[in-house]
Design a protein around this nucleic acid. Structure first.
Ligand SMILES: [Zn+2]
Ligand SMILES: [Zn+2]
Ligand SMILES: [Zn+2]
Ligand SMILES: [Zn+2]
Lengths: 171, 171
DNA sequence: AAATGATACGTTATAATATAACATTAATAA
DNA sequence: TTATTAATGTTATATTATAACGTATCATTT
């Protein structure tokens, strides 16, 4: 009923996060007959390097270093758009930033727990909340199509070390 | 348990919305010893002219017409910032737009039902959801501080007339 | 293999949203 | 009044995102 949140905000074998994400992505591309190009895979990889959402221009910087050539914004936004369409990443509106989805193809709450101190974000799926929002919509005669739920606060790590400096990511 | 949604998306005496909002705003300013200037009141009034969220540059246009003088972005953003601080308006992140709050000072869910067809947005308060999000946060050891919940879909009016053109606001 | 069509990427320019920095004016307090 | 604070004016610029058009790459058909 509540998935993924604990995992993200604790020390964990992050290499597995990355490789699992890339495997899922390749499978999905095969299934959908979409092409996983170098650009797209690199962007996905960068978004999985940590559990911190990255902005498009942060991605641009890191991508041009990684590919060792200049990359213009449209290239980044195209890769982002592609990954969004496939459900491999999400956009977090209040941050203007993007993050890898840990469970593409699954039932989604689009619920994010975002740490205001270290910047990490955990996506969480929560059936009860989906049901509640659906019934609230029904009551209001609102035809629910999609949702984005953002929670701001302190992640478990930062809750116990509230004096940590801003940048100190424990990822 | 579910407030305000029905009201917004149905034809209603909108003059009352505006005047009630301005009264509340003035009361709040008196209480908090804050100044409700012409600029600030005008922005609030513009945001209450409809239940459509407005962007900062839409506000700039309308404000300069209203005040009959050129208005630069910082002026608009300052008024927005002021009204946000007092809780008189909200920012809807996925729209980069602002909307008047129908119940400042009250318990908030920061839950918006946004019509993808006509663009109207209804703010809703929903205790059960707040409780659920709080307990989900607790379970994840996440110290919840604030939240923004955005639901996208069709408002009651647009659900019954799904062929209406984009711009046709029934406000 | 060559021709074709579709997809992805390169490149330049620009739109849309938001803020920094500092000068000026208006309101309040002393 | 003078000093002090708060609000606005003004100019410049940062940040995020997209439009438009050309070129290269990939896949399919001939
Ligand atoms: Zn997801
Ligand atoms: Zn944290
Ligand atoms: Zn509100
Ligand atoms: Zn509508």
């Amino acid at each position: 009923m509540l998935t993924n949140s604990r995992l993200v905000h604790q020390p964990h074998d992050h290499g597995r996060c990355i490789s699992a994400a890339l495997t899922r992505a390749n499978d999905l591309c095969t299934e959908k007959k979409a092409r996983m190009t170098i650009t797209r895979e690199s962007v996905l990889r960068l978004l999985w390097q940590s559990h911190q959402p990255l902005g498009a221009y942060q991605l641009q910087d890191q991508l041009s270093k990684l590919l060792e050539k200049p990359i213009a914004p449209p290239t980044v936004y195209r890769a982002i758009e592609f990954l969004l369409q496939l459900g491999l990443i999400h956009r977090i509106p209040s941050l203007n930033a993007y993050i890898g989805c840990p469970f593409p193809n699954s039932e989604h709450s689009n619920l994010f727990m975002i740490c205001s101190q270290c910047g990490s974000a955990a996506e969480v799926a929560h059936n009860t909340i989906n049901g509640l929002l659906q019934s609230a919509s029904d009551k209001a005669n609102f035809t629910l199509q999609s949702q984005t739920l953002e929670l701001f606060g302190l992640c478990p790590q930062c809750s116990s070390n509230p004096d940590d400096s801003e940048g100190s990511s424990h990822d």
